[in-house]
Amino acid sequence: MADKTPLVEMKNISIAFGGIHAVEDVSVELFPGEVVALVGHNGAGKSTLIKILSGAYKRDSGEIFVNGERAQIANPRDAKRYGIETIYQTLALADNVDAAANLFLGRELMTPWGTLDDVAMESETRKVMGRLNPRFQRFKEPVSKLSGGQRQSVAIARAIYFNARILIMDEPTAALGPQETAQVSDLVRQLKKDGIGIFLISHDIHDVFDLADRVVVMKNGQVVGTARPGEVTEDDVLGMIILGKCPPGATPGPGALQVAA
């Protein structure tokens, strides 16, 4: 895949909140049809990194390229214009409105008279929710009344509905049951086949090895290293996460533990 231009390339990204370097000099790339997993301990900077890509945070330094061209991403609207869709860890749903209103938030379907076309939006919502969570029926209720998993399904539906080219999934299955989790895994494989690039953040190393083409390990805001699941073991990756030790099969990053050789 190295011969192709990456779909997304984040170069030397840094951001600090007050004195905390949440993300420091991180470079990652994502190719079409590739799933790149971002793993690391709590507070490693995974969510912060992808929020820079999705336009939620403004980086202090570094550059983002989409399809080889420098991208100007200053807010979430910009990111969406580049085809970047995000499932946030916090889900980012407006609790007081229903699933359809959330799914189309910011991109409402309108009638020819310029009014909200709630009927069309609900019927579309029924279609995509049918793919994700066929048992879901509570279309008329505000999402605050839904279960954690149902809310997560709504957030996933929103990200995949608009034909994303780049999908960011921040712990998308944290609240899902086994069946729904399996459905999301199938969905990821399907989207991969369609040539969509996916950043997947997960704490489930097993899942990560199952789905990802490459695993990027972060620790204290820095990249420890990048590995391919076929070339390292799950224990190697755990070692990278916990100790920051880069095994022989992986490409070390700036955050790798410097072992005096």
Partner: peptide, 8 residues
């Protein structure tokens, strides 16, 4: 926050 992230 969600409204902002949705691009509003």
């Amino acid at each position: 926050e969600a409204a902002e992230l949705a691009g509003i």
